[in-house]
């Protein structure tokens, strides 16, 4: 198949796929290999191998594998008040599976997902692209054993710089010293 073929996937927004090679598989799915990049509107997926399964009404499922496979979803500029802006979302995992029918990306393997400056780690994460909603879960069957590594979802949030506080104001007192002096 031709290199860098452009293919119209979703009636609403064009889906572009670039890859070094493309092969047709029996059963109707296409396999792209070699720095694959898929763009669907403001969503970009990239990786080493893309397995594309097309459905009759133009919907498709794109399973991207990579070391790691990457997802980038551009943020939205603040429309109204400050609260409206949507930070960009990225994801890194061994496998990303995007299903255009429900516009959800399944992120599997030790996934790292970022939303703006926040990082989300978990065993399996579902990202709803249109709603920009992230559902993350730890490893099955070890709920409660919270201390085992990787068992739980971990979200690390970078707070905005504090207004008016002295530099490093919020820095925790060094351990052991009386907690009274910052």
């Amino acid at each position: 198949a031709a290199k860098g073929e452009r293919e119209q996937l979703r009636p609403t927004s064009p889906v572009k796929i670039n890859a070094d090679r493309a092969e047709w598989q029996k059963g109707g799915s296409m396999v792209y290999t070699g720095n694959v990049r898929l763009e669907s509107g403001d969503l970009k997926l990239s990786g080493d191998r893309l397995n594309l399964t097309q459905f009759d009404n133009g919907e498709f499922e794109a399973k991207v594998d990579g070391k790691p496979a990457k997802l980038d979803h551009a943020g939205l500029a603040a429309a109204g008040t400050r609260g409206d802006e949507r930070p960009p979302v990225t994801a890194r995992a061994s496998t990303l599976t995007y299903d255009s029918r429900n516009d959800i990306v399944e992120v599997a393997g030790d996934a790292l997902l970022t939303r703006g400056t926040d990082e989300i780690r978990g065993q399996n994460i579902r990202y709803d692209v249109t709603e920009r909603r992230i559902e993350a879960q730890g490893k099955e069957g070890c709920e409660g054993a919270s201390t085992k590594a990787g068992c739980q979802v971990e979200i690390v949030i970078q707070p905005p710089p504090r207004k008016g506080k002295t530099e490093g104001g919020a820095a925790a007192p060094s351990p052991g010293k009386a907690a009274s002096n910052p």
Partner: peptide, 18 residues
Amino acid sequence: IVLDDRIRLNADKALLEK
């Protein structure tokens, strides 16, 4: 005591709304 002031959340399940 962690020196930076980043917030760490751990949970079995997390749901982040937009």
